[in-house]
Design a protein around this nucleic acid. Structure first.
Length: 475
DNA sequence: CTGGGGACGGGGCCC
DNA sequence: GGGGCCCCGTCCCCA
């Protein structure tokens, strides 16, 4: 601890101790082996933050889209898993100033993160929460991620609680285009003792600092997003969710790309950033706990929206776009297109879906060959006129004529095995298509065409009805 | 360039 | 009220 910090502490405690009777001091000292000064931590943090602002002892530079942030290696190490990895890998060069470069989030976003690191206060707004969560995902700051998630969820709760206020506001309040949400949204995290920062206080105009209206908000990697980018109706489709490669957490090698003391430019893969974000959203979906020492405060007018008469039936307003739905469940469903949450994995191929019905549809279409249509000639097929073909994890039907054309008629179909496969006892287990079963397909009693990678199964229309009862094994 | 298949979001209905 | 399901429209990818 620096001398100045210690001196501050002593100065701070002096009047307190002097004010106590000597007997009290000795009695307390005898009962408390190690006295804990509650203000110490915040004081220390305050001092570190002051040092950061004055660039005192800062031994780490972070370059974010051209803007340089100064910080302390120790503080970053203690706050972020990413920096922990990065700095520990470069521990040999501890004497050299460390430099990290990011282009995956904006300077504003990193300002919020860094302010949190040095103050414990997270300045979240409806405009920055996704960016901050993505950045926190990348930096592996799980506390911040949790706070962001709670923030988003809380928006929903407040939306519900204050729905009556939609209608209590006059048309004048709503303006001519009542469906438009209010321009600003504000909320923030603060210490229990309360924050002096006005932007954290839940008053109406508190979010003006960000200056971004609701309908300007969209969910994109910061590197791809303009702050002013409007949110089109299907814009979430352009979000990295769809482009995401198989989900994976940031790898240590990615962190290693930041070279200590070299200031090497680095562009992190936005896909990986969001993938992590998605993954964490899902993994932590049931974690609503608030980090100890914090309390959540949010502006009371977050969802105080009113709508014209024609829209008054639609009560739930998406906090990230102008979309309005009638049911809270619909809003919850809609929000996944903003958060990228995909809680429904396909057990057959591992692909993840944001909605259960989409998963069901995918499973039926891709893995169950439910369509009684020949994939090639589009004619209706029955158990007499066609067969199910398995290609990898896909199943579809071909009529006997088309089967002959693809030269698989020479393949023997093990009817006995087929009967066994669709027997009631085994049907359910088989049709669930567990990945583990995929991997151990040697036990599957079907015949594979080695050249075409096809597996021919006899069509059984009775199975068709039964398959409708089979649902993907949703974990 | 075009058509088909699949993914995906929204809306509505039923339980 | 919420979950599940179905339908529809749109978009994207690919052959």
């Amino acid at each position: 601890m620096r001398r100045s910090a210690v001196r501050e502490l002593v100065v701070d405690l002096k009047p307190f101790l002097l004010a106590l009777p000597q007997s009290t001091v000795s009695r307390v000292a005898s009962h408390i082996p190690s006295m804990e000064i509650s203000s110490h931590q915040s004081h220390l943090l305050q001092q570190l933050n002051e040092q950061r602002r004055q660039d005192v002892f800062c031994d780490c530079s972070i370059l974010v889209e051209g803007k340089v942030f100064k910080a302390h290696r120790n503080v970053l190490f203690a706050s972020s898993g990413y920096f922990k990895m990065l700095l520990s890998q470069n521990s040999k060069e501890a004497s050299q100033p460390a430099t990290a470069t990011f282009q995956t989030f904006s300077p504003d976003t990193f300002t919020v993160i860094l302010d949190f690191v040095y103050s414990g206060k997270l300045s979240l707004t409806g405009q920055n929460v996704i960016d901050v969560m993505s950045a926190a995902s990348f930096l592996q700051m799980t506390d911040v991620i949790g706070v962001c998630k709670t923030f988003i969820k809380s928006s929903l709760d407040i939306s519900e609680k204050e729905k009556d206020r939609y209608f209590s506001l006059s048309d004048k309040d709503a303006g001519s285009n009542g469906a438009e949400p209010p321009s600003f949204y504000s909320s923030g995290w603060q210490e229990e003792s309360g924050s002096p920062r006005s932007r954290l206080s839940p008053d109406r105009g508190a979010g003006i600092a960000s200056g971004k209206p609701w309908n300007k908000y969209s969910f994109h990697p910061a590197s791809q997003r303009s702050p002013q980018q409007p949110l089109a109706k299907h814009e979430p489709r352009k979000d990295p969710v769809k482009k995401t490669k198989p989900l994976r957490p940031p790898q240590p090698s990615e962190a290693a790309q930041c070279q200590s003391g070299q200031g090497e430019a680095r562009t992190a893969d936005p896909g990986s950033l969001v993938s992590k974000s998605e993954e964490q959203v899902q993994v932590e979906a049931d974690v609503d706990s608030v980090p100890a020492g914090y309390q959540y405060s949010q502006g009371p007018d977050v969802t105080s929206r009113s709508f014209p008469d024609g829209l008054s039936r639609l009560r739930f307003k998406c906090p990230y776009c102008t979309h309005v739905v009638k049911r809270k469940a619909d809003l919850k469903r809609h929000l996944r297109c903003h958060t990228g949450e995909r809680p429904y994995p396909c057990q057959a191929c591992g692909k993840r879906f944001s909605r259960l019905d989409h998963l069901s549809s995918h499973f039926r279409t891709i893995h169950q060959a439910c369509k009684l249509i020949c994939r090639k000639c589009k004619r209706h097929v029955t158990d007499l006129t066609g067969q199910v073909v398995q290609e990898g994890t896909r199943r579809y039907r071909l009529c006997n004529e088309c089967l002959a054309e693809v030269d698989v008629d020479s393949l023997p179909v093990d009817l006995e095995a087929e009967r066994h496969r669709v027997s009631p006892a085994d049907r359910d287990q088989d049709c669930r298509w567990h990945l583990s079963e995929e991997e151990s397909r040697s036990n599957v009693e079907v015949v594979e065409d080695g050249s075409a990678g096809l597996v021919i199964q006899q069509v059984d229309d009775s199975e068709e009805e039964e398959e409708k009862e089979i649902k993907p094994n949703i974990g």
